[in-house]
């Protein structure tokens, strides 16, 4: 079936199978491989993308159900060569070891900070508990989200002035 998908602000026409997951379309049809396969069961969060700003497990989302919605992947965060503040924070505190979970972690953190710019640590843990890091770099990831949220708060203060 032919689908029109709005990915990172660009509309793509793709020919997808009716049972094809959004993850598969992103990776196989659109070559956006930053979004990872980790389990295909919605249990690890490696495939997290934003659908109208909300975090979704793309492995358990049919591509057809994403039509007409705004899809954001890790590749869509960087703007004009500038990293998103969450990407910047992950890089700054090195919140990764092997890096395979990083895209999904960053997407979840972006979604969290969008709805709650200054979350408490327990709110971060609760929101992100569906994302698995097998290297268990969790303390660093918590630190990165904290750094990103501090920045987000600073920015909103600046904007308010």
């Amino acid at each position: 079936m032919s689908l029109a998908l709005l990915v990172n602000g660009i509309e793509h026409k793709v020919d997808a199978a009716p049972d094809q997951s959004l993850l598969s379309v992103l990776r196989d049809n659109l070559n956006l491989t930053g979004t990872k396969y980790g389990c295909g069961e919605g249990q690890c969060g490696a495939c997290t993308v934003l659908l109208n700003g909300r975090p979704m497990r793309s492995c358990r989302t049919l591509a057809s159900s994403a039509a007409g919605k705004s899809i954001t992947t890790i590749e869509g965060l960087e703007q004009n060569g500038r990293l998103h503040p969450v990407q910047e924070a992950f890089l700054k505190v090195e919140a990764f070891e092997c890096g395979y979970c990083t895209s999904g972690m960053i997407m979840s953190a972006v979604a969290l900070l969008k709805q709650n710019p200054s979350p408490s640590e327990s709110e971060v843990r609760e929101f992100m508990k569906g994302n698995v890091c097998r290297c268990c770099t969790y303390p660093r990831i918590l630190q990165a989200v904290r750094v990103a949220s501090t920045r987000a708060v600073e920015r909103s203060v600046e904007q308010a002035r």
Binding site: L32, T33, G34, T35, T73, I74, E75, L77, E78, L83, Q87, E88, F90, L91, E94, F96, G99, T102, S103, I106
Partner: peptide, 12 residues
């Protein structure tokens, strides 16, 4: 800092 660290936060 990690060599190629940027490529891991951009999905590249």
């Amino acid at each position: 800092p990690k060599v190629d660290g940027r490529a891991f936060v951009t999905g590249e």
